[in-house]
Design a binder for these strands. Structure first.
Lengths: 204, 204
DNA sequence: CTGAATTTAGGTCAATTGTCCTATTTAATA
DNA sequence: TATTAAATAGGACAATTGACCTAAATTCAG
C-alpha cells in the first residue's frame, strides 16, 4: 500500500522533527547532536541521514513545525472567542501554561533566536518569523480594541514583556516571578480602555 | 623583579579572561573553543592550559569579571548622582549605549543565563548573581523613591523590560524598537510619583 | 653568571562531531 | 512469486573538541 509507505515515511520524519524540536529547546541547537536525536527516536544514524542530509535541514524543519504549531494555537485562540481581550489573555497565559518548562529552559522562541544570532546562522530570519506571527496577531487584536495607531507598539510591548518574564523566571528559577507578572499583566489588560475605534471592531 | 613576573602572569591571565568574555558573548560559551580563545589572545593552547585547567574555570573567571565590571559600573552610577531617578535612568540607558552589540548578540547576562540553563551547567547560580546585583541596586533606588513595598517588584519589572527589549531588538535586528522602548521607559521614569517615603530618601 | 622557578610552545590523546557510504531489510507492484 | 523501490542499520571518515604532557624559553634570585 502506497498509503502505508508514505505514512511511514512521514511518520519517521515527523518523529525526528518532533524529537529535535524538544531537544533543541531543552539543550539548544548546537548542543544537540545527530546521535542525541537518533537515540531519542530510536533509529540509526544512517536512517536519520536518509531523511535529513544536514543539521541545517533539521533546523529548518523544526522551525517550520514550530511555525505551524504556533499558527494553529493562534487560530484556536481566534476561534474560541470574538473578544480581543479574551484572545490577548490567551497569549499572556502561555507563560503560566508552560510554566515548568519555561523555568527550566526559558522561552523556546527567544532562546532559539538568541542562539542563532550568536552562531550567525542563516536560519535567523526564519526564526524571526515565529515572533512576527505573534506580533501581527496581537497587533490585530489591539487594533480591534481601537488602538489602531498604537496597536503594533502594544503588541511589541507584550512580546517584550513575555520574553523578559521568561528570561528572568528562568534565571532565578522562580515561579513566583512568573505568577506575579502574569497576574499584573492580566489586570492591566482588564483595565485597558478601548480606543475610539472600538465601535468598528467588527471590520477585523 | 617579582613584580614583573606577577604582573605578566596576571596580564596573560587577564587577557585570556577578557578575550573569553567577548567570545562567550558573541558566539556563546559552548561554541567558543580553547583554540578560539588562544588564537584571539595570540598564545599557544599549552600556555592557555597553564592558566586554566578546564573550560569551566574560564567560565567562572568570566563571570567573576562580569560581576566586577557590573559592580564597578553601578558604583559609578551611584556616585554620579544622589537622585534615584537619575541613577535608574543610567540603567535604562545601557540598552542604548550598547545598542549595536545588543542588536547582534542580545544581552550578555540574559543570553549566558539561558545557555547555561540549557546546558544545566553548575555555574548557573553564579550567572544568576549578575541579575541579582542589578536587582538589589534597582530595589534600593526605588526604595529611596519611597516605593519600599513595591521596590523589588519595580526592580524586577525593569529587569524584565530590559531583557525583553534586548531579545526582541536582537530578533528583529531593529534599533527602532530599542530606541522607542527606551524613550517610553524614560518617560515612565520621569512621570513616576514618589511614594510616601520619599522624604526619608536620605537614609539610603 | 648559574641554577631554580615560572611561563610558554606545540604535540598527543581519546572522545565526539557532522557527514557519507554500503549492505540489509521491508514494502509495493506486476 | 519475482522484481523493484523505499527504508533502515551500522560502520567509516575527517575534523574538531577539551584535556593532558613534555620540552624549551624566559625570568629572577643568589
Amino acid at each position: 500500500m502506497v498509503q502505508n509507505m508514505v505514512a511511514n515515511r512521514k511518520k519517521t520524519r515527523c518523529d525526528i522533527v518532533e524529537a529535535a524540536n524538544i531537544l533543541f529547546y531543552h539543550h539548544g541547537y548546537e548542543h544537540t547532536s545527530f546521535a542525541d536525536i537518533a537515540e531519542n527516536v530510536k533509529i540509526s544514524r544512517g536512517n536519520f541521514y536518509y531523511h535529513f542530509k544536514t543539521k541545517d535541514e533539521i533546523l529548518d524543519a523544526v522551525i517550520a513545525l514550530r511555525l505551524a504549531e504556533t499558527r494553529s494555537m493562534i487560530a484556536q485562540w481566534t476561534d474560541q472567542s470574538d473578544a480581543p481581550k479574551e484572545r490577548i489573555r490567551h497569549f499572556i497565559n502561555i507563560l503560566k501554561r508552560h510554566q515548568s518548562k519555561i523555568l527550566l529552559y526559558g522561552c523556546p522562541v527567544g532562546s532559539l533566536t538568541l542562539e542563532l544570532a550568536k552562531l550567525n546562522h542563516p536560519a535567523q530570519k526564519d526564526a524571526q518569523a515565529l515572533f512576527s506571527v505573534f506580533r501581527h496577531w496581537l497587533c490585530q487584536q489591539f487594533t480591534a480594541l481601537g488602538h489602531g495607531e498604537n496597536a503594533d507598539k502594544l503588541a511589541l510591548d507584550l512580546l517584550v514583556w513575555s520574553q523578559g518574564v521568561a528570561t528572568l523566571a528562568s534565571a532565578f528559577q522562580d515561579e513566583a516571578i512568573l505568577a506575579q507578572e502574569v497576574a499584573k499583566k492580566e489586570a492591566w489588560l482588564e483595565q485597558i480602555k478601548p480606543g475610539f475605534l472600538e465601535k468598528h471592531r467588527s471590520f477585523i
